[in-house]
Nucleic acid binder design. Sequence first.
DNA 1: GCTTTATATTACCATATGCTTATATGGTCG
DNA 2: CGACCATATAAGCATATGGTAATATAAAGC
Lengths: 110, 110
Amino acid sequence: MSVRPLSRAQLHAIAERFKALAEPSRLAILAALREGERTVSQILRATGLGQANASRHLQTLYAAGFVERRKDGPSIWYRLADQDVMRLCDLMCGRLEREASTRRKLFAAR
Amino acid sequence: MSVRPLSRAQLHAIAERFKALAEPSRLAILAALREGERTVSQILRATGLGQANASRHLQTLYAAGFVERRKDGPSIWYRLADQDVMRLCDLMCGRLEREASTRRKLFAAR
DNA sequence: GCTTTATATTACCATATGCTTATATGGTCG
DNA sequence: CGACCATATAAGCATATGGTAATATAAAGC
């Protein structure tokens, strides 16, 4: 099955989205949001990130379309925009588990 | 459905893998390999990348486990390691298409 | 063995990105 | 309006990363 070639702009756009996921701190935020909607303060406690730092990471995730947000008084609640994030992360985690399993088998084989 | 918390090391490992996909040039290489196994020279022609540049990107993709390779005389053939890359990219492309579609609707709604 | 072809590696520069400190915005309550 | 909380933004530094040019390795053929 052949796929129509991707333009430079499209490649750039896709890379941009992957880049948003390519940072441990942002993955930690997403992992926290997997539990449910959270305010920034709650995210700070859950991840141990600094305030300014977390705020910028949240902007990045928002710009990439991975999270949505709503205001509630002085607080802002963030949530996952859809299930894609989970799917993407689960796919990647699955790869890591298989890697680890392969490594274990190699060691086990003496 | 709750997920066991991820360690710093795991988050780092996952981010590392996403980082390998977070670069237009590497996505272009993967797109070329989607067509089938290719030598480095063929990849150079397909992507327009410089030789040294492509070589480094291929090392990155190899280290991340996304491509495999085999020697054949003086040439080295690269191929996708499995179907995950396609799945990951397709997921991301799907997101972009939906974004674009939403944008179109917004404009259409005047 | 020497030349040629194919690929990898090194060194270098320019740019991008993360983290932190300090400051700004914006809402709430008294 | 003034003090306070929650969040965002700006500035600055340190590091990481992509691209290129130059060099190294390695196989093939004469």
